[in-house]
């Protein structure tokens, strides 16, 4: 039934709306973990957008790397170091239920969207017409952008080193 109203752009707008609302919740939220969850929702919505724009590879990366790895890093940091403590203390408790419902609602909307996309053959055909698949991206990455990939690896190395330096425990022993 819903599928009849569905077109790529209406789905895109819906996903975009979800992303915007979720992002707003991230920014305005009080609870760190809630905010992180909203951020995940936002990223997922953006991934749907990517998919609708004909970039399934990017959508996959968004989900796997962004939502799956980077945000998990956040969650780890929050949980391990109790970073959220000073914010949760001040958070209004009664809003928790509403928050839960909000997040659930947004996630649900995304779920419906995905179901529609998968079920609708027309949509699938339209999407396939102008998709830029992982092969094209791969050719680019290991063709003209090869140096960029190399430099990106150094970028990660820099991030790693800087992160290591800041996070490593204070020295207690003398110089090596």
């Amino acid at each position: 039934m819903l599928a009849n109203f569905a077109s790529i752009d209406s789905l895109f707008y819906l996903a975009g709306l979800v992303a915007v609302i979720a992002s707003l919740k991230v920014v305005t939220g009080n609870n760190t973990v809630h905010a992180l969850l909203y951020l995940v929702v936002s990223l997922l919505a953006v991934a749907v957008c990517f998919y609708l724009m004909g970039a399934p590879f990017a959508a996959g990366l968004e989900v796997i790397v962004y939502a799956g790895a980077i945000l998990v890093l956040f969650v780890f940091a929050v949980l391990m170091f109790g970073l959220g403590a000073d914010e949760t203390a001040n958070a209004p408790q009664n809003k928790n239920v509403a928050n839960m419902f909000g997040a659930m609602f947004l996630a649900f909307a995304l779920l419906i969207e995905i179901v529609i996309i998968i079920n609708n053959a027309d949509l699938q055909q339209n999407l396939q017409a102008n998709v830029i698949d992982s092969k094209a991206v791969g050719i680019m990455l290991y063709g003209p952008y090869l140096l960029a990939v190399e430099i990106a690896s150094f970028l990660l190395l820099a991030g790693l080193l800087a992160g290591y330096h800041y996070a490593k425990p204070d020295v207690t022993r003398g110089p090596l």
Partner: peptide, 25 residues
């Protein structure tokens, strides 16, 4: 566009790493 997105992903990872480390500090 997608290549750039991947590069941005790298940047985000690096930034988060440094940022969180600083946060802990």
């Amino acid at each position: 566009g997608q290549v750039m997105f991947i590069l941005i992903l790298t940047l985000a990872a690096a930034e988060v790493a440094v940022g969180l480390a600083l946060l802990i500090r």
